[in-house]
Design a protein around this nucleic acid. Sequence first.
DNA 1: CGCGTTTACGTCGTTCGTAACGATA
DNA 2: TATCGTTACGAACGACGTAAACGCG
Lengths: 330, 330
Amino acid sequence: MTLSQLRYLIAVVDQGFNITQAAQSLHATQPGLSKQLKQLEQWLGFELFARRGKTLEGLSEPGALVVEQARQMLAAAERVRALRASYAQDQGGELRIATTATQARHVLPAAIAQLRRDWPSLRIQLTPAEDEAALAALEANACDVAIVSAAEPPSGLYALPLYHWERQALMDIDHPLAGVPQLGLSELSAHPLVSYTSALRPGASLEQAFGAAGLPLRVGMSVSDGDLIKTYVRAGIGIGILAPMALRPEDGDLAARSLQSVLPRMTTWFVLRPQQTLTRALTALLDHLAPHLDSWAVRQQLLGDPAAVAFKSKVPEWKPMRGLVHEPRD
Amino acid sequence: MTLSQLRYLIAVVDQGFNITQAAQSLHATQPGLSKQLKQLEQWLGFELFARRGKTLEGLSEPGALVVEQARQMLAAAERVRALRASYAQDQGGELRIATTATQARHVLPAAIAQLRRDWPSLRIQLTPAEDEAALAALEANACDVAIVSAAEPPSGLYALPLYHWERQALMDIDHPLAGVPQLGLSELSAHPLVSYTSALRPGASLEQAFGAAGLPLRVGMSVSDGDLIKTYVRAGIGIGILAPMALRPEDGDLAARSLQSVLPRMTTWFVLRPQQTLTRALTALLDHLAPHLDSWAVRQQLLGDPAAVAFKSKVPEWKPMRGLVHEPRD
DNA sequence: CGCGTTTACGTCGTTCGTAACGATA
DNA sequence: TATCGTTACGAACGACGTAAACGCG
């Protein structure tokens, strides 16, 4: 009797007595499980499963008792694993993240808190930087991961999508634009805009969109983060263009309107160097930030396996908080 | 992390942080444990033990937490082992015992009850036989073990001592002999004796003792088991000579006096054929009957290893129940 | 100098993955 | 016929035992 045999057993039970599926969930091969389970049965001297032909129908009577004990053992093993993470005076226990102020303030806190809890000795270094600077830091090996937002993945690097989002136009709740049925570039063009420095830079997608429509882009102010955008929108400087992650429940005095129809959809990327090794800390961070990704497959891809499928489900969309979405009735 | 690593850890803790001793208790080698423990520590990322130089002084702080979980896991593993014994539709699950009526009635019931509880499917066949017949059955492979009593181990077979005992003279509690200070052969010689058929056979140790003392041996009756001896002693046929195992609390109307000074000490033997394989059932029976023996070492000896030491402690003495011992004050 | 631990090394057994086969709906 | 389980085989890893070196009392 080994712990892996018990793990196999539990996986098969939890996957509805489908050995193939259980093998996938454990990143093992189906014959491997099959053989180990048979070996366990032989050691026990009785059958674990009720079989009809070759298909498993359920547990045998003693099998259910074994499962009960196996769950206890694996639970204890899991507690040991937790100790391992907690008490490891970690070899290279450092995680250097370069990202924007918006991510640092509105997205990462939950994940990092979890990480710190699981792993108290891990030293986390969070460097605020604009998108380009973050990517440069990554390429210079000044950080382990860059988390940046862009419509397209950065070229020459290994980028994983964390979530999609649409840029939001932000204004006072009784601003005239809050009520117009269709909010397009022409309406925006009449007002000065307040947004991120990088978004208002010449050549950025905002300028391209206005240029393509033959409309002038009036810059009211360019700032470094979303909180400042909100501050200056409240001060009446102009219309804010910002990411929905920066919107908070306490921003109910403002109206946010999606620019989905006029500006390309943005994606926030978890960027690594090609062939970078996925450390435990990186894996944990990725698992917290992106439950839709299979970090094991990601590791395989980084090791050069193109067949590994990293997606467990669709990339999520980050929507602004419901109370803040201002959709005029039409 | 493997179950054996955890077993090693617990053994070291329970043996007072002496790896060598722990290895012995597990029938493993010391370097093996040492290495596995080191490997476990490496996997955990912290030290399990508080070390001073190379010697272990105790547990580290996280080590104590690991031990706690490890005990839970091993306890659950033990419960699975129990299931294994209980539910195994056992291959060749048969245990054939040949032994005397005294053993069958007074000694074996507890051990066999335990065996049946651990192992419901085991078919136990108990054949009552006199000592010689039991040994003959063993040699003929008509049984798996013979349990017989004799002063010396039977020759040509592999005999393990279960316990020592002294023959008891049995009489009515107000019989004249119950009070004499010294009970010797000459006193006994004046009365007819009631004992086992095999004990009164010509050439047996009883006859030899009387012969050596130049005294006549008067046989009152020879019977097949201890209960009949008691019956005929109560009927006034004569003095009983029997094994202390046959004495019961309800025999308070009789007096038992040890013949330790006049007759050689007897030993009850667990007899196997040389090179017989020790089945699981035999091992379990032996463990129940003889906690002073190391069944693992016995198995090794049977496999031809003369170095294996089978004794964990001294062979116990079977004394008659305290209330029945009649020791005249002198 | 002895006891106990660690290190080094060779061998054996076991596990796991790939591939082919078999059975079942 | 497609899906799922079993068997067969080969390679790689890991555990264990033997033997020798190291430290400490």
